[in-house]
Design a protein around this nucleic acid. Structure first.
Length: 393
DNA sequence: AGCCCACTCT
DNA sequence: CATGAGAGTGGGCTT
């Protein structure tokens, strides 16, 4: 993947750079005009100066000891019209500096060749640097446009993206042997909706509201991170008491999950390591620390590392098998990037269909292959699901 | 050079 | 070190 690289449309890069730079310039002028002459030397990119402006000069509400991060600013939008513009300025300057101008230094012969660091993360994931191709913007429509600068090497090729759906939650269901969750996955149900149905104790005829589904989704994501009542309350903007009740209800619903998580922490305490299904290990030293905060952090590591790490192991197995089979089948297709639960390949258009089937099949069977290759005493309980997409950039 | 803060992704 | 996990980069600022 490093050697193959990804082609860059340098003309598109130039056009987008100029466009965003103009927008940025415009907002900067608006901000300075709004504030008047006293602030003509203000550097909006300086958190220190911004803190002084917002909390000392403009006397806005200072709730998080001077922090000016997005969350704080969003709470202050109604207090002063400049706040909204500062948020926009931040977004655009990140976009232009990191994802547009920042790329130029990595382009060699119209391509970027990222590094995929293979022995760096604590869990077994890869990381990507110089440039990082695993954190290219996608959420916001304007920001996701930067993805257009990455193109195939000729019009005879397409990109193919294959994503595991809910890989970490499926891994958790597998490892915990959580019967309700396994059943939902294996019947291809909407996991957030079904979780909501159970948390809020609805009958099969009652409708899950979008609010209920949103709450369940936060749970399903947070559970692999060792979510706390405190964090959940903050996320959902509810009281800690309400959060406590929802957590209780969630674990009553998925009782095997609770047992499994407790067991992970006990195991880690005994051997001072957290480990994946395939026995990749991470030393955990915080579990007997006298500080509650540090101990809690150790517990979250003990829970998250086996889940995140097993998911990473599964994709690695898939990648090894895909590489072999693409060659064996003489397909004109190359992996170009891995983004934790997703592979991107550049594929000759005439080989698209065959490659899709091959890659999908290898990704789906990777858990089974991991178990049999390593002779693990484990059976496959949960199906893996893979979604597919195709594009010119 | 190195830390901090802010932003980006799964 | 830290009040859900794992990462990387850029600008400001201090040393």
């Amino acid at each position: 993947m490093e050697k193959t690289g990804v082609s860059v449309d340098t003309n598109e890069l130039k056009i987008q750079t100029e466009k965003i730079q103009n927008l940025l310039q415009q907002i900067e002028t608006e901000i300075l005009n709004m504030l008047g002459d006293e602030f003509r030397d203000l550097n909006i990119a300086s958190p220190k100066q911004l803190k002084e402006l917002l909390f000392e000069k403009l006397k806005l509400t200072n709730k998080k000891k001077g922090s000016t991060d997005k969350e704080v600013l969003e709470d202050l939008i109604d207090e002063h019209p400049v706040v909204e513009k500062i948020i926009r300025h931040r977004k655009l300057s990140k976009l232009v500096n990191t994802y547009l101008v920042g790329f130029n230094k990595y382009i060699k012969n119209e391509k970027v060749h990222t590094k995929f660091n293979q022995s760096l993360t604590a869990t077994g994931r890869l990381s990507s640097s110089d440039p990082n191709l695993q954190n290219i913007s996608i959420r916001d429509e304007l920001q996701r446009q930067v993805r257009k600068i990455f193109v195939t090497s000729s019009s005879e090729y397409s990109f193919m993206g294959l994503d595991y759906s809910q890989i970490e939650l499926r891994v958790l269901a597998q490892m915990a042997n959580e019967k309700h969750m396994i059943e939902m996955f294996n019947n291809d149900l909407d996991i957030h909706e079904e979780a909501a149905r159970k948390i809020f104790k609805l009958s099969s005829s009652e409708t899950v509201t979008s609010d209920m589904r949103r709450v369940a989704k936060v749970f399903n994501f947070g559970i692999a991170y060792g979510l706390s009542d405190f964090g959940l309350a903050r996320d959902l903007k509810i009281s800690v008491a309400e959060a406590k009740n929802l957590i209780k209800s969630y674990f009553e619903t998925f009782s095997d999950l609770k047992n499994f998580i407790d067991q992970l922490i006990l195991d880690a305490k005994q051997i001072n390591f957290a480990r994946t299904l395939s026995n990749r290990r991470r030393k955990v030293t915080q579990l007997s620390d006298p500080s509650f905060l540090i101990r809690s952090f150790g517990e979250r590591i003990a829970v998250n590392m086996p889940i995140q790490g097993t998911a990473a192991d599964i994709l690695k197995i898939a990648m090894i098998n895909i590489e072999k089979k693409l060659k064996a089948n003489n397909l004109d297709a190359k992996m170009v990037a891995q983004i934790h639960d997703e592979l991107i390949l550049e594929v000759k258009k005439t080989d698209l269909k065959a490659t899709e089937e091959l890659v999908k099949s290898e990704m789906k069977s990777a858990l089974r292959d991991l178990i049999t290759t390593l002779n693990l005493n484990e059976e496959v309980k949960v199906d893996l699901k893979v979604s597919y997409s195709e594009a010119e950039n």
